[in-house]
Amino acid sequence: MADDGPASAAGRVVLLGAAGVTGRATLPRLLDAGYRVTAHSRRPQRSADPRVTWHDGDIAADETLLRAIVDGADAVIDLRVALPTSLRTLGALAQYRKVRDTAMGQVVDACLECAVPRIVRDTVTMVYRDGGDRLLDEDSAVAAPGPMRANLAAEEHARRFTRSGGVGVALRFGMIHGDDPLTAMIESVARRGWFAIPGRADAYVAPLALADVGTAVVAALRAPAGLYNVADEPLTRAQWAADYARRVGRDRLRLIPGWLGGPMGRSQRVSSARFTEATGWRPSRRA
């Protein structure tokens, strides 16, 4: 049974990364649930909704600003990713590490100083080792090379927050798809006859519809401290490729060998049963 989270009727939550893909999907779900939201983006944003107060600025460089934003919050949700569409962008990998690791550590420190009771942080299911056709739960083995290791660091910061008396919740999101750059890229490649997610035909992927991200984050505000997978029912590459083929009007798509995709090419048949049991959350396809 989930522990008590912030009361939605009066709770104020801070949403970091509110102008990003997952932040934009989450903000309206928080408002639907009755929360007042302090939203942050590096660049100025506007909202006509009186329940949303926007802040901008570099909170990674200005910890005084960070503390001012989180002070008095019932929960802080950190959805910052800083992953550009091209990893060749100068400094992209370093920035990814910084946002997931160093910047998350700063959030934990600020929340401890300001007595914020709860933090929610997203990471990725892609950290799991190739599991073949086995179901992977939160205790399954991980292998996170290079910048992927920053996801494990973010999860450790959440555990540190819990050890210090707060409620730290880490959500390992599946492969997000919807109105986002990754999906647009997959569809573009599909029109040329290829499925852009590398892997064997029988290798599994754990998708997560962008529309389900926000409902999962809201559910996490009442979840016990811990690590949770958040994904839809796993599909094989062949099944998902067939879905995209139908979407772009092709009979079939050719698959890219898994070894070309690194962690993205692994077979990850991920189970979200622990999160469903703790919160009652289900993706829209299974609701």
Rank of each mutant, 00 (worst) to 15 (best):
M1S: 14
P6C: 09
A9L: 04
R12P: 01
R12V: 06
V13G: 00
V13N: 02
L15W: 01
L15H: 10
G17L: 07
A19Q: 06
V21P: 14
G23V: 09
G23S: 03
R24C: 03
R29N: 13
L31M: 06
D32Y: 11
G34M: 02
G34N: 04
G34Q: 02
G34Y: 09
Y35V: 07
Y35S: 01
T38Y: 06
R46V: 12
R46C: 07
S47I: 00
A48D: 12
T53Q: 14
H55E: 10
H55W: 14
D56H: 14
T64N: 13
L65S: 11
A68H: 14
A68Q: 13
V70F: 07
A73I: 09
A75N: 05
D78N: 15
L79W: 04
R80T: 09
R80M: 11
S86E: 12
L90V: 08
G91Q: 07
Q95H: 05
T102S: 15
A103T: 07
A103F: 13
G105E: 05
L112A: 01
A115P: 02
A115N: 15
A115I: 04
P117N: 10
V120D: 00
D122V: 09
D122N: 12
M126E: 13
D130T: 05
D130K: 02
G131D: 12
R134K: 15
L135I: 15
L136S: 10
L136N: 05
D137M: 01
D139I: 07
A141N: 05
P145S: 10
N151Y: 08
N151K: 00
A153Y: 05
V167M: 11
V167L: 06
V169N: 08
V169A: 03
M175D: 11
M175R: 12
H177C: 00
A184L: 02
V189Y: 14
V189C: 14
A190D: 03
A190G: 08
A190R: 10
R192W: 08
G193W: 01
F195Y: 15
F195V: 08
F195G: 03
A196G: 04
A196V: 01
I197P: 02
D202L: 05
Y204M: 00
A206H: 03
A211F: 00
D212G: 04
V213R: 02
V213T: 05
L221E: 05
R222V: 02
R222C: 08
A225R: 02
A225F: 05
V230D: 08
E233V: 12
T236M: 11
Q239A: 14
A241I: 11
A245Q: 09
R246Y: 01
D251T: 11
D251G: 13
R252F: 06
L255S: 07
G258L: 09
W259N: 10
G265H: 12
V270G: 03
V270Q: 04
S272V: 09
T279Q: 12
G280D: 08
P283W: 03
R286L: 13
